[in-house]
Design a binder for these strands. Structure first.
Length: 298
DNA sequence: CCATGGTCGGCAGTGAGTAA
DNA sequence: TTACTCACTGCCGACCATGG
């Protein structure tokens, strides 16, 4: 971890770029900057219990909307638009948002204007679909907690919970739905506009403790920890089996989620580690330009 | 035939990098 | 400084392969 924070903030140019993107004070120490960066992502559950606390549909809606807002879009690009997204959705109120859409006072284009990039329309559409889903599903978070409780009661280790739920929400196959019947009045767990990766982002926004293996993280871990990957692969396959899937992309997602959990040291959260590894991949160890450094994570 | 899974390309704007 | 190329991001739908 020290090596990663050093690499991130020692270089003047990179430190200033990160500070510009996330409105941090460049005169802080490396440790303070690392802490402030993780803070800026706002997903670190800290010491609290994960996945167990209450969350209103409004809190759930905010978590979903922000996860969708991060799709194919650097967080720093979206940040300036966050305020207007919050205003358009009445402070992430799914009921008022759904009502405004019904009354044709809010359109996909209105929301898309807050989401720069190629997936703007699709993400905006998904944000509306989520409002409609939550509008007709009271206490959605309780539904998720029941899923969480079931998996735990069946002996699933806690590091596997978020990846498992993310697969059920993001890429449920027919077998998955047989083993995990969807909530009442619904014929699927599939959430709008999210695959497993965005679904784990969504869960993290709800302060569930999980590791999100995005492209940067996968790329760097492939270089750093081939042995851990080898070791976690059978466990990912077993987990996939448990979830009723053998899809290659899902197994890759599960493998790297487990690798992330495995390399997270005692006393650190998954979120802290993956936020910092992500930043390293996004700002320093870029694709095709990686150094030969194998960063120790401790 | 049906369910499942793999592969590929489109989406559409950002920003880093490079050449002139 | 300007103009240009290209990689990047995750989801999804079209299409094909496999196997019961």
């Amino acid at each position: 971890m020290k090596a990663i924070t050093y690499k991130l903030f020692a270089d003047e140019k990179i430190r200033h770029r990160i500070c510009r993107d996330y409105a941090l004070d460049p005169s802080l120490s490396h440790e303070q900057l690392a802490e402030a960066l993780v803070e800026a992502f706002g997903q670190n559950p800290g010491a609290g219990p994960d996945g167990r606390r209450e969350a209103t549909n409004q809190v759930v809606y905010r978590a979903a909307a922000l996860a969708l807002a991060s799709n194919s879009r650097s967080w720093a690009t979206f940040l300036p638009h966050e305020k207007s997204l919050a205003e358009l959705t009445f402070g992430y109120d799914p009921y008022r948002t759904a009502a405004a859409v019904r009354a044709e006072q809010l359109t996909i284009n209105d929301l898309a204007a807050c989401l720069p990039g190629q997936t703007a329309g699709k993400d905006a559409h998904a944000i509306i679909r989520w409002a409609e889903m939550l509008d007709s599903t009271p206490r959605y978070h309780e539904v998720l907690r029941r899923l969480d409780e079931r998996l735990r009661s069946e002996g699933m280790e806690s590091a596997a919970i978020v990846p498992a739920v993310a697969v059920i929400l993001g890429a449920p196959g027919g077998k998955t739905l047989k083993q995990f019947p969807p909530p009442e009045k619904s014929d699927t767990w599939k959430v709008h506009g999210m695959g497993p990766v965005l679904a784990s982002e969504f869960l993290r926004n709800l302060q569930w403790a999980g590791f999100k293996p995005d492209r940067h993280v996968i790329r760097l871990f492939t270089r750093w920890f081939p042995d851990v990957i080898e070791k976690e692969m059978p466990r990912a396959r077993a987990l996939g089996e448990r979830l009723g899937t053998r899809r290659k992309d899902v197994l890759e997602f599960l493998t790297f989620s487990l690798v992330g959990a495995a390399v997270t040291p005692e006393g650190k959260t998954f979120t802290e580690v993956d936020n910092l590894v992500w930043a390293l991949g996004a700002y320093t160890e870029k694709k095709g330009k990686e150094s030969s450094t194998v960063y120790r994570i401790d």
